[in-house]
Design a protein around this nucleic acid. Sequence first.
DNA 1: TCCGGCACCTGTACGC
DNA 2: TGCGTACAGGTGCCGG
Length: 299
Amino acid sequence: MPELPEVEVVRRGLERGVVGRVIASVEVCHPRAVRRHLAGAADFRSLLVGRRITAANRRGKYLWLAVGAEAEPVGSPARPDAPGEDALIAHLGMSGQLLVVPAATPDQKHLRVRFVFADRGRELRFVDQRTFGGLAIAVGGGALPEPIAHIARDPLDPAFDEDLVVLRLRRRRTGIKRALLDQTVVSGVGNIYADEALWAARLHYARPTETMTGPEIRRLLSAVRTVMAAALTAGGTSFDRLYVSAEGVSGMFERSLEVYGRAGQACRRCGAIIRRDAFMNRSSFTCPTCQPTPRRARW
DNA sequence: TCCGGCACCTGTACGC
DNA sequence: TGCGTACAGGTGCCGG
Protein backbone atom coordinates (compact mmCIF):
# COMPACT_ATOMS: atom_id res chain seq x y z
CA MET A 1 0.00 0.00 0.00
CA PRO A 2 1.64 3.25 -1.03
CA GLU A 3 1.99 5.43 2.04
CA LEU A 4 4.12 8.53 2.47
CA PRO A 5 7.57 6.89 2.09
CA GLU A 6 6.50 5.03 -1.03
CA VAL A 7 4.98 8.17 -2.54
CA GLU A 8 8.11 10.19 -1.75
CA VAL A 9 10.24 7.54 -3.46
CA VAL A 10 8.02 7.87 -6.53
CA ARG A 11 8.19 11.68 -6.39
CA ARG A 12 11.97 11.59 -6.41
CA GLY A 13 11.88 9.26 -9.39
CA LEU A 14 9.57 11.65 -11.24
CA GLU A 15 11.86 14.55 -10.42
CA ARG A 16 14.72 12.66 -12.04
CA GLY A 17 12.69 11.25 -14.91
CA VAL A 18 10.17 13.79 -16.19
CA VAL A 19 10.82 17.30 -14.83
CA GLY A 20 11.94 19.65 -17.62
CA ARG A 21 10.36 17.55 -20.38
CA VAL A 22 7.55 18.55 -22.76
CA ILE A 23 4.49 16.30 -23.10
CA ALA A 24 3.87 15.37 -26.74
CA SER A 25 0.83 13.12 -26.35
CA VAL A 26 -1.39 11.58 -23.71
CA GLU A 27 -3.27 8.31 -24.10
CA VAL A 28 -6.02 7.56 -21.60
CA CYS A 29 -6.41 3.79 -21.78
CA HIS A 30 -9.01 3.52 -19.01
CA PRO A 31 -11.45 6.38 -18.29
CA ARG A 32 -11.75 5.47 -14.63
CA ALA A 33 -8.14 6.57 -14.16
CA VAL A 34 -9.19 10.18 -14.84
CA ARG A 35 -12.64 10.00 -13.22
CA ARG A 36 -11.74 12.85 -10.87
CA HIS A 37 -11.07 15.06 -13.86
CA LEU A 38 -14.72 15.92 -14.29
CA ALA A 39 -14.33 17.48 -17.75
CA GLY A 40 -13.34 14.09 -19.13
CA ALA A 41 -10.45 12.36 -20.83
CA ALA A 42 -10.40 14.57 -23.93
CA ASP A 43 -10.10 17.70 -21.80
CA PHE A 44 -7.45 15.99 -19.69
CA ARG A 45 -5.39 15.34 -22.81
CA SER A 46 -5.84 18.78 -24.30
CA LEU A 47 -4.73 20.50 -21.10
CA LEU A 48 -1.43 18.62 -21.07
CA VAL A 49 -0.22 18.26 -24.65
CA GLY A 50 2.55 20.75 -25.41
CA ARG A 51 3.14 21.61 -21.76
CA ARG A 52 6.44 21.36 -19.94
CA ILE A 53 6.66 19.65 -16.54
CA THR A 54 8.44 22.05 -14.21
CA ALA A 55 8.35 20.34 -10.81
CA ALA A 56 7.36 17.16 -8.96
CA ASN A 57 5.65 17.89 -5.64
CA ARG A 58 3.94 15.99 -2.86
CA ARG A 59 1.45 16.65 -0.07
CA GLY A 60 0.87 13.59 2.07
CA LYS A 61 0.10 10.71 -0.30
CA TYR A 62 -0.83 13.04 -3.17
CA LEU A 63 1.64 13.85 -5.91
CA TRP A 64 1.39 16.64 -8.43
CA LEU A 65 3.43 17.64 -11.41
CA ALA A 66 3.46 21.38 -12.06
CA VAL A 67 3.01 22.02 -15.78
CA GLY A 68 3.96 25.31 -17.42
CA ALA A 69 4.08 26.61 -20.96
CA GLU A 70 6.25 24.87 -23.55
CA ALA A 71 7.86 28.20 -24.39
CA GLU A 72 9.87 28.15 -21.19
CA PRO A 73 13.53 27.46 -22.04
CA VAL A 74 14.95 24.00 -21.48
CA GLY A 75 16.91 23.83 -18.26
CA SER A 76 15.10 26.69 -16.59
CA PRO A 77 14.85 26.07 -12.83
CA ALA A 78 11.70 24.46 -11.47
CA ARG A 79 9.27 27.10 -10.27
CA PRO A 80 6.62 25.38 -8.16
CA ASP A 81 5.18 28.73 -7.06
CA ALA A 82 5.04 30.27 -10.51
CA PRO A 83 1.66 31.82 -11.31
CA GLY A 84 -0.32 30.35 -14.16
CA GLU A 85 1.02 26.85 -13.75
CA ASP A 86 -1.44 24.00 -13.66
CA ALA A 87 -1.12 20.80 -11.67
CA LEU A 88 -1.35 17.21 -12.82
CA ILE A 89 -2.52 15.57 -9.58
CA ALA A 90 -1.92 11.88 -8.96
CA HIS A 91 -2.99 9.55 -6.20
CA LEU A 92 -1.69 5.99 -6.27
CA GLY A 93 -4.60 4.59 -4.27
CA MET A 94 -4.03 0.98 -3.34
CA SER A 95 -2.02 -0.27 -6.25
CA GLY A 96 -1.04 2.65 -8.47
CA GLN A 97 2.39 3.04 -10.04
CA LEU A 98 3.94 5.93 -11.95
CA LEU A 99 6.66 4.40 -14.06
CA VAL A 100 9.28 6.09 -16.23
CA VAL A 101 10.17 3.41 -18.76
CA PRO A 102 11.70 3.05 -22.24
CA ALA A 103 9.07 3.44 -24.96
CA ALA A 104 9.80 -0.08 -26.17
CA THR A 105 8.72 -1.58 -22.84
CA PRO A 106 5.69 -3.84 -23.43
CA ASP A 107 2.44 -2.38 -22.13
CA GLN A 108 1.69 -3.38 -18.58
CA LYS A 109 -1.52 -5.36 -18.11
CA HIS A 110 -3.07 -2.56 -16.08
CA LEU A 111 -1.72 0.40 -18.02
CA ARG A 112 -4.23 3.24 -17.53
CA VAL A 113 -2.55 6.40 -18.90
CA ARG A 114 0.52 6.86 -21.10
CA PHE A 115 2.50 10.10 -21.47
CA VAL A 116 4.84 10.42 -24.45
CA PHE A 117 7.38 13.24 -24.45
CA ALA A 118 8.60 15.46 -27.28
CA ASP A 119 12.17 14.22 -26.84
CA ARG A 120 10.93 10.66 -27.64
CA GLY A 121 12.79 9.40 -24.60
CA ARG A 122 11.33 7.33 -21.79
CA GLU A 123 7.55 7.36 -21.32
CA LEU A 124 5.64 8.07 -18.15
CA ARG A 125 2.99 5.43 -17.45
CA PHE A 126 0.26 5.30 -14.84
CA VAL A 127 -0.38 1.65 -14.07
CA ASP A 128 -3.04 0.68 -11.54
CA GLN A 129 -4.42 -2.78 -10.94
CA ARG A 130 -7.32 -1.92 -8.60
CA THR A 131 -8.06 1.54 -10.05
CA PHE A 132 -8.43 3.14 -6.63
CA GLY A 133 -5.88 5.70 -7.74
CA GLY A 134 -6.29 8.32 -10.41
CA LEU A 135 -5.14 11.47 -12.18
CA ALA A 136 -6.73 14.91 -12.54
CA ILE A 137 -5.72 18.42 -13.58
CA ALA A 138 -6.19 21.46 -11.36
CA VAL A 139 -6.01 24.66 -13.35
CA GLY A 140 -3.78 27.22 -11.70
CA GLY A 141 -2.77 24.75 -9.02
CA GLY A 142 0.95 24.63 -9.57
CA ALA A 143 1.75 25.78 -6.02
CA LEU A 144 -0.85 23.77 -4.06
CA PRO A 145 -3.78 22.38 -6.04
CA GLU A 146 -7.17 23.29 -4.59
CA PRO A 147 -8.50 19.69 -4.63
CA ILE A 148 -5.82 18.67 -2.12
CA ALA A 149 -5.66 21.88 -0.08
CA HIS A 150 -7.50 20.08 2.75
CA ILE A 151 -4.67 17.55 3.19
CA ALA A 152 -2.58 18.32 6.25
CA ARG A 153 1.20 18.45 6.22
CA ASP A 154 3.02 15.22 6.99
CA PRO A 155 5.40 14.62 9.93
CA LEU A 156 8.45 14.72 7.63
CA ASP A 157 7.46 18.12 6.20
CA PRO A 158 9.78 20.89 7.50
CA ALA A 159 6.69 23.07 8.00
CA PHE A 160 4.88 20.40 10.06
CA ASP A 161 3.34 22.15 13.09
CA GLU A 162 3.54 19.60 15.90
CA ASP A 163 1.88 21.84 18.51
CA LEU A 164 -1.11 22.31 16.22
CA VAL A 165 -1.42 18.59 15.54
CA VAL A 166 -1.25 17.77 19.26
CA LEU A 167 -4.02 20.28 19.86
CA ARG A 168 -6.19 18.95 17.05
CA LEU A 169 -5.73 15.32 18.09
CA ARG A 170 -6.66 16.04 21.70
CA ARG A 171 -9.80 17.85 20.57
CA ARG A 172 -11.03 14.79 18.71
CA ARG A 173 -13.44 12.29 20.25
CA THR A 174 -12.35 9.10 18.59
CA GLY A 175 -9.76 6.33 18.73
CA ILE A 176 -6.14 7.34 18.15
CA LYS A 177 -5.63 5.13 15.09
CA ARG A 178 -8.76 6.45 13.44
CA ALA A 179 -7.49 9.99 14.05
CA LEU A 180 -4.02 9.09 12.79
CA LEU A 181 -5.50 7.84 9.52
CA ASP A 182 -7.44 11.10 9.02
CA GLN A 183 -5.39 12.88 6.35
CA THR A 184 -6.84 16.27 7.31
CA VAL A 185 -5.20 16.06 10.76
CA VAL A 186 -1.85 14.54 9.83
CA SER A 187 -1.12 13.20 6.38
CA GLY A 188 0.89 10.36 4.96
CA VAL A 189 -0.03 7.75 7.58
CA GLY A 190 -1.73 4.60 6.33
CA ASN A 191 -2.65 1.33 7.97
CA ILE A 192 0.86 -0.14 7.96
CA TYR A 193 2.74 2.78 9.47
CA ALA A 194 -0.09 3.54 11.91
CA ASP A 195 0.29 0.04 13.37
CA GLU A 196 4.09 0.25 13.38
CA ALA A 197 4.14 3.67 15.07
CA LEU A 198 1.54 2.67 17.67
CA TRP A 199 3.61 -0.40 18.52
CA ALA A 200 6.78 1.70 18.81
CA ALA A 201 4.98 4.18 21.09
CA ARG A 202 3.36 1.33 23.12
CA LEU A 203 -0.13 2.68 22.47
CA HIS A 204 -3.29 0.73 21.67
CA TYR A 205 -5.19 1.77 18.56
CA ALA A 206 -8.48 2.20 20.45
CA ARG A 207 -7.08 4.66 22.96
CA PRO A 208 -9.49 7.62 23.11
CA THR A 209 -7.79 10.74 21.78
CA GLU A 210 -9.29 12.95 24.48
CA THR A 211 -7.54 10.91 27.20
CA MET A 212 -4.11 11.23 25.65
CA THR A 213 -1.55 13.59 27.14
CA GLY A 214 0.56 15.96 25.09
CA PRO A 215 3.75 13.96 25.76
CA GLU A 216 2.01 10.73 24.66
CA ILE A 217 0.96 12.29 21.36
CA ARG A 218 4.44 13.72 20.82
CA ARG A 219 5.88 10.26 21.49
CA LEU A 220 3.54 8.82 18.89
CA LEU A 221 4.39 11.50 16.31
CA SER A 222 8.05 10.90 16.96
CA ALA A 223 7.47 7.18 16.33
CA VAL A 224 5.65 8.00 13.09
CA ARG A 225 8.62 10.06 11.94
CA THR A 226 11.10 7.35 12.90
CA VAL A 227 9.18 4.59 11.11
CA MET A 228 8.64 6.69 8.00
CA ALA A 229 12.26 7.85 7.86
CA ALA A 230 13.47 4.25 8.13
CA ALA A 231 11.08 3.18 5.37
CA LEU A 232 12.21 6.05 3.18
CA THR A 233 15.84 5.08 3.64
CA ALA A 234 14.95 1.53 2.64
CA GLY A 235 13.05 2.68 -0.46
CA GLY A 236 9.56 2.14 0.92
CA THR A 237 7.61 -0.87 2.10
CA SER A 238 7.13 -3.61 -0.45
CA PHE A 239 4.81 -6.60 -0.18
CA ASP A 240 4.75 -7.51 -3.83
CA ARG A 241 5.38 -6.11 -7.29
CA LEU A 242 2.58 -3.56 -6.85
CA TYR A 243 4.74 -1.20 -4.82
CA VAL A 244 7.64 0.11 -6.80
CA SER A 245 9.51 3.33 -7.47
CA ALA A 246 9.24 5.24 -10.75
CA GLU A 247 12.13 3.14 -12.00
CA GLY A 248 10.26 -0.05 -11.08
CA VAL A 249 12.41 -0.95 -8.05
CA SER A 250 10.73 -2.59 -5.04
CA GLY A 251 11.37 -1.41 -1.48
CA MET A 252 12.90 -3.57 1.22
CA PHE A 253 11.27 -2.20 4.39
CA GLU A 254 8.86 -5.11 4.76
CA ARG A 255 11.67 -7.12 6.27
CA SER A 256 11.82 -4.80 9.26
CA LEU A 257 8.10 -4.46 10.07
CA GLU A 258 7.53 -5.16 13.78
CA VAL A 259 3.79 -5.92 13.98
CA TYR A 260 2.06 -5.39 10.65
CA GLY A 261 1.31 -8.74 9.03
CA ARG A 262 2.88 -10.68 11.91
CA ALA A 263 -0.24 -12.14 13.57
CA GLY A 264 0.60 -15.33 15.47
CA GLN A 265 4.30 -14.51 15.65
CA ALA A 266 6.24 -13.41 18.73
CA CYS A 267 6.66 -9.71 19.54
CA ARG A 268 10.33 -8.90 19.06
CA ARG A 269 10.24 -6.72 22.18
CA CYS A 270 8.51 -8.96 24.76
CA GLY A 271 7.81 -12.31 23.12
CA ALA A 272 4.00 -12.13 23.40
CA ILE A 273 2.02 -13.34 20.40
CA ILE A 274 1.00 -10.58 17.99
CA ARG A 275 -2.75 -10.40 17.43
CA ARG A 276 -4.81 -9.22 14.52
CA ASP A 277 -8.14 -7.43 15.04
CA ALA A 278 -10.68 -6.33 12.48
CA PHE A 279 -10.88 -2.54 12.64
CA MET A 280 -12.38 -0.01 10.25
CA ASN A 281 -12.99 -2.72 7.63
CA ARG A 282 -9.28 -3.57 7.71
CA SER A 283 -6.76 -5.11 10.07
CA SER A 284 -4.95 -3.87 13.13
CA PHE A 285 -1.93 -5.69 14.47
CA THR A 286 -0.95 -5.22 18.13
CA CYS A 287 1.15 -6.78 20.85
CA PRO A 288 -1.26 -7.54 23.75
CA THR A 289 1.48 -6.92 26.32
CA CYS A 290 3.18 -3.81 24.91
CA GLN A 291 -0.16 -2.33 23.79
CA PRO A 292 -2.80 -3.34 26.35
CA THR A 293 -6.42 -2.52 25.56
CA PRO A 294 -7.38 0.66 27.43
CA ARG A 295 -10.17 0.50 30.02
CA ARG A 296 -11.98 3.16 28.06
CA ALA A 297 -11.69 2.31 24.40
CA ARG A 298 -13.04 3.89 21.25
CA TRP A 299 -13.29 1.34 18.48
C1' DT B 1 -19.33 20.19 12.65
C1' DC B 2 -17.78 15.85 13.78
C1' DC B 3 -17.93 10.97 13.55
C1' DG B 4 -18.48 6.35 11.64
C1' DG B 5 -19.94 3.15 8.01
C1' DC B 6 -19.59 1.84 3.48
C1' DA B 7 -18.76 1.57 -1.70
C1' DC B 8 -15.35 1.50 -4.98
C1' DC B 9 -12.09 -2.36 -7.38
C1' DT B 10 -9.39 -6.58 -8.77
C1' DG B 11 -5.82 -10.14 -7.88
C1' DT B 12 -4.72 -13.70 -4.71
C1' DA B 13 -5.48 -17.34 -1.41
C1' DC B 14 -8.22 -20.78 0.19
C1' DG B 15 -11.93 -24.20 0.75
C1' DC B 16 -15.00 -27.27 -1.40
C1' DT C 1 -9.72 -28.17 -12.41
C1' DG C 2 -13.09 -24.87 -11.57
C1' DC C 3 -16.03 -22.21 -8.87
C1' DG C 4 -17.32 -19.22 -4.98
C1' DT C 5 -15.93 -16.46 -1.20
C1' DA C 6 -13.01 -13.69 1.84
C1' DC C 7 -9.58 -10.46 2.08
C1' DA C 8 -6.43 -6.55 1.17
C1' DG C 9 -7.25 -0.96 2.13
C1' DG C 10 -7.13 4.91 0.81
C1' DT C 11 -10.47 8.02 -0.16
C1' DG C 12 -14.82 10.37 -0.61
C1' DC C 13 -19.57 10.42 0.24
C1' DC C 14 -23.51 10.21 3.07
C1' DG C 15 -26.36 9.68 7.13
C1' DG C 16 -26.73 10.33 12.06
